[in-house]
Design a protein around this nucleic acid. Sequence first.
DNA 1: GCGACAG
DNA 2: ATCTTGTCGC
Length: 263
Amino acid sequence: MRPDRPEFRPDPALSRAEMEELQRDIAEAAVFTDDLDFDPDDVSLDGPADADASGNERLVASDAPVIVGVDQAFLDGRAVSAVVAIQDGAVIERAHAVSPLSIPYIPGLLAFREGGPILAAFEELSAEPDLAVFDGSGRIHFREAGIATHVGVILDLPSIGVAKSLLCGEPREAVDDRPAGWSTPIEAGPNVEAPDGTVIGHAYQSRQWDRSQSINPLYVSPGHRVSAATTVKLVDALCAGYKLPEPTRLADAYADEVKAGYE
DNA sequence: GCGACAG
DNA sequence: ATCTTGTCGC
């Protein structure tokens, strides 16, 4: 897949002030409303719905959306970036890239460390994705430009961010011990460069134990061309009984697999 | 100065 | 993120 807006590439050599300024440009170019080329209701992890009288799937290309999960593994000073594409829940392609890392992890500037390596993996992908699921935040970011938003804008690809912990913003309600399916808005507060109260994402409880131990919720947010409400709906449809959505789990496993071959 | 901070 | 054994529970 080719970068649509190469001028937004996250250059690790930029100064901190330049990085932050680029993020404000990314946020301005980002679309936080639904502009998808598919119906969110068509997202499913089950096989094609239509089959002939004998129950066999039709021998034609599916028109179901192609969704990619993006994740990374690390070794020494390198990143193993993995992109796994699925359609109707089945893997149709896997692509990866191994790239040197030039800067350390800095909260708020993750895209400048991992964005380039991720774009390299996308260039190895031949499938044409309809949606990308990133491990990290999208709009839930100090300047509304987390890695899901940054990469989504560069590729002009609808994207969402799925983070395991909250970077910034304020949950409207306490998030502890919630049942599966529950969600609450994450609103912009003093740390976010957006009008106070702006809904920048949601805490979403994708899984929960029946008793005893409790699982923390996921923090999901729009990357590009997806609304906050649809983001929750998509993540819900992409989860299969585990805390993390399937695209993310598959990408995580593939990244580990590739990494294992390098050591 | 102090606290908070995706992966 | 990564380094890592055991352990609780269905």
